[in-house]
Amino acid sequence: MELLPPFHVATPGSIAAAVAAGQDHAASRFIAGGTDLMVNLRHGIGDPATLIDLRGIPELRHVSAEPDGLVIGAAVTLAELAEHPAVASRYPAIATAAAAVGAPAHRAAGTVGGNLCLDTRCIFYNRSAWWREANGFCLKYQGDTCHVAPTGKRCHAAFSGDLAPALLVHAAEIDIAGPGGVRRQPLAELYAEDGAAHLSLAPGEFLVRVVVAADPWPASYAKARARGAIDFPLAGVAVALRRSGEEVDGLRVALTGTNARPFLLAGTDALLGAPVSPAWLDRLGRLVQKQVSPMRTTLLAAQYRRRVAAALAQRLAATLGGLDAVGRAA
């Protein structure tokens, strides 16, 4: 693989210093674990003069799981999050999603902020510089045609972070720091359905922390991938399901790996007020299949990813709804 481009690394020790570094260096990128960015840089994607390493900021390095909620610093590693006892016991979907990223050495380096702000992926994009050049580059970077949908106007690269859906079903909020100070917003608003511009972060902004309310609904996360380890999700699904007696009175489903952004399934209110049953699971599956839009961005067929997304949602909802994984009475 190619050598890294020339760059200088800045290591600010505070949020204010990191914001200032972002303003001082126009051609800069924020970095933490670097498990994705380092590979892309070696593929000739991006040429930042400065990398601003956020891991030296103490506020970004803490997980606090208090009775009033969960606060996760953006530079907490995925391994630290997955192994945190309070996260594993009270927010198992979040711990499961963190543990499903890559392999142990990736999780020891990769961070929460990095996984949430992960670049989108595509078989025409995650390639060496010479491969992409020989292919005329692509709409996402340096080119003007999307090879996945050549007649289309936008990039279809898929968001492939595991953590986002598990946080979305818990209605997580995020703090973003930048030249204008720190602002809080729902995590869902971080993302847009455009593979070339899927993050709403303005220049000089970075993720500080994730905030999740206390008393989460029961939830779980599952992903399909080509191998049992290392791989990004072909489809990943988180389901949070609350019941009152037998009836479902709260339902959130979030997906990753199928679209340019991770997103909350719309229309789940129509499934409230009824117990989970095979017919109910059919309706959920149809809802998922209708809203996911996998394209030919992975080696596996888009139609497989559409169906596996629905099947994963049905399995998780069945188990959370008191049935076995294939929807029979447990």
């Binding site: 670097g34 498990t35 380092m38 390493d53 380096a109």
Partner: peptide, 13 residues
Amino acid sequence: GTPRLACLTRTEE
């Protein structure tokens, strides 16, 4: 003491 990938780690880190 923790396994890490030397191909993703900068020396300065």
